[in-house]
């Protein structure tokens, strides 16, 4: 599913930052992977490279067998739309759109007909227990509900991978557990590969594979 071989990434500037240093990683379909590590260890950069949100300098990245290198922004957009769902710490919902419209957005860009869109959005909102909030705007929802909406948006396209960057970082511990359960449910029921970045060790129990990073390198890779 995800193949990273010798990935290097340096942010140029007055003081170049070597964010990823010879990263080799293979993630299979249906895995639930947690990437942990201290701040500045390269976790988010790695996630961005996996999500085609950032480029890499050297090495080779293959997603579903496709070499991710020198793609145009539109090619990247198509691959993202068809394969990857994103969940962020700050939810990143569009503030003036309703829950329904936020979840519907990826389907619009895929060109799914309106009737089918409605059906799929309602189905996923039901799974996320958000069917009562379809017309609410994000500001009228709790943090947990907003993150559930973000997960619904990520899941509505039936992606092969969900990349979650500190999805519980803005939530209290009860909500955090709830979101983790939801991601776990998505992983188990839909066989979707979940890769999440977190520095909350309390959540480590929910993860089936824990990758620890330090100074842009994979320090450890444990399967549980």
């Amino acid at each position: 599913m995800i193949d990273l071989n010798g990935i290097d990434k340096t942010y140029t500037g007055e003081q170049p930052v070597h964010a990823l240093n010879d990263v080799n990683l293979h993630i299979d379909e249906g895995e639930f992977v947690g990437i942990m590590g201290p701040s500045g260890s390269g976790k988010s950069t790695l996630l961005n490279v996996m999500g085609l949100l950032d480029s890499y300098d050297s090495g080779e990245y293959r997603l579903n067998g496709i070499l991710i290198k020198d793609l145009t922004r539109n090619e990247e957009a198509v691959i993202r739309n068809r394969n990857i769902g994103f969940v962020f710490q700050r939810y990143n919902l569009i503030s003036f759109k309703s829950v329904f419209e936020n979840v519907e957005l990826p389907l619009i860009y895929r060109g799914v007909p309106q009737e089918e869109r409605k059906e799929r959005v309602m189905e996923i909102l039901k799974r996320m227990e958000l069917e009562r909030f379809t017309k609410h705007i994000p500001a009228h929802l709790s943090g947990g509900q907003q993150q559930r909406t973000a997960i619904a948006r990520a899941m509505v396209m039936n992606p092969k991978i969900i990349l979650a960057d500190e999805p519980t970082g803005a939530l209290d511990s009860r909500m955090s557990q709830e979101i983790m359960k939801l991601l776990r449910k998505c992983n188990e029921e839909s066989k979707v590969t979940v890769v999440l970045v977190t520095h909350e060790s309390s959540l480590a129990g929910q993860i089936s594979r824990c990758i620890k990073m330090n100074d842009g390198r994979i320090a450890s890779d444990e399967r549980r």
Binding site: R82, F86, R153
Partner: peptide, 16 residues
């Protein structure tokens, strides 16, 4: 800017 970025991660093309 953030909203446009969200649209891009949702699969919007630059043209859109």
């Amino acid at each position: 800017t953030k909203e446009i970025a969200v649209r891009l991660i949702c699969g919007s093309s630059d043209r859109s």
